Amino acid sequence: MITDNEQQTLRSAFFDNAELHFILFDSELNVIDANESLLKFYHIERDAFVGKHILEVAPNAIEKGLYGQYMQVIQTGKPLIIEEIIGSPIYGNQYNRVKAFKVGNGVGVAISNITEYRNTIESLEVLSYRLSHDIKSPMTSVLELTKMALQEDPVDIDTLKAYCGLINESVSRLLETVEKVNESLKIQKVVPHFELIDFRTIIDEVKKSLASVEGYTSQNFEETIDCPFDFYFDKPIITSLFQNIIDNAIKYRNVKRDDSSLSINISGDKEFVKIILSDNGIGIKKELQKNIFKLFYRATSQAHGSGIGLYTLRYTIEKLGGRIFFESTEGQGTTFKIIIPNKIGIINPAD
């Protein structure tokens, strides 16, 4: 039989280490407590959160309906399940499933992050559409061309070669689509390996690998690295991050300017690193911005791309507890901001 103190210790351990985020409010919706999982995830100091009113920590709670719904739980005692979107200038958009239930005279809130599940469903929908479109179209072309070739009577060698050339193009498009699908599926199976990250070396290696890209010599780079603590993360993901965004900055530069630039600013503490990459390129049209992290999406035809790079980047970063978001103005440029957690001390699967 465990003692009351031991039971309290076990409850505290569960409360603080659960993946769900827990918040306790009193009857007036002042924060009584929050678990360490929530505080660490949002990089919030306990003193800056506990004891505050809900409208201090979530100023839009009334507008979003949360204030009224939490008060309803307090008054009726009936639990509610709510889905909400949190938009943060640091963490980007996050989709949460919130269960609010009465605790004493107040309300308890259990928050689960369903962003990855929503993104996965969205990606599967896009994948289904692209499979039906990008595979059906070339297959239909092959069948039609084959039918036409068989109906030629007699058929000369030049006509036959022309048909074969068109069939070859359709099959090549089909294989390209299959390769893209395989690449996107491989993302789901990647097992991260955490190691000490040397940002300077990675950036230099990425720039060297892109030196032959058209426009590289026209791009000016400004780099500031202020990361005084050892930072551990998956090196291929960090490399992919710089590879994708630097490559895009070069390809989608404003060719009318003679001062194309990309600034890279890296700062960090013991828990997180913030990476800001800002260019003065062509930017992204406002109506297209909501799609840039979608699978197979390309926002511009100025340069060729698979439409997988930014999708992969967001998926892998968010899977490991990071956040990525961007701001862009057409004709002025684009800024990416990435927050990634320090994985120091985490044991790798193979260790």
Rank of each mutant, 00 (worst) to 15 (best):
T217K: 13
T146N: 13
S260H: 09
K337A: 07
R314C: 02
I340Y: 05
V206S: 07
E152H: 06
E330F: 09
N182H: 06
I225D: 08
E183Q: 10
K64C: 12
P154T: 03
K180P: 03
G215D: 12
N5R: 12
K343Q: 15
Q302K: 14
R46I: 08
F25S: 01
E36D: 13
N113K: 05
S278H: 13
E318H: 11
D33S: 15
L24H: 11
Y252K: 04
D198T: 06
Y163E: 12
V107T: 11
I324G: 02
L145S: 03
I339K: 07
G215A: 09
I225K: 11
E6M: 09
Q188Y: 14
G268K: 00
D259C: 11
V98P: 01
I317S: 00
G283I: 10
E327N: 15
Y42I: 04
K52Q: 11
V73W: 02
I264F: 01
Q151N: 10
S218E: 15
F221T: 07
I264P: 01
F272C: 01
Y232R: 04
G268M: 00
E183K: 09
E116V: 04
C164P: 00
L262C: 09
A48D: 15
S184M: 09
S218F: 14
V103P: 02
S278P: 00
R298D: 03
Q332T: 12
E56L: 10
T201I: 11
R46W: 08
D351C: 04
A303W: 11
E45Y: 12
K286A: 15
L127R: 09
K285G: 12
I121A: 10
I23T: 14
L124A: 12
Q332G: 00
T177N: 11
V98Y: 06
G322W: 04
A110S: 15
S12C: 02
I347W: 00
S137N: 13
T9A: 15
T9M: 11
H304R: 10
I282A: 01
T159S: 14
P349F: 06
E19D: 09
F242K: 04
Y232G: 01
F49R: 07
V31G: 02
Q7E: 12
N280Y: 10
L124N: 14
S88D: 14
R46V: 04
S212Y: 07
F272K: 12
Y95D: 14
L38R: 02
I74Q: 03
I203N: 06
V50D: 14
I167D: 03
E287S: 12
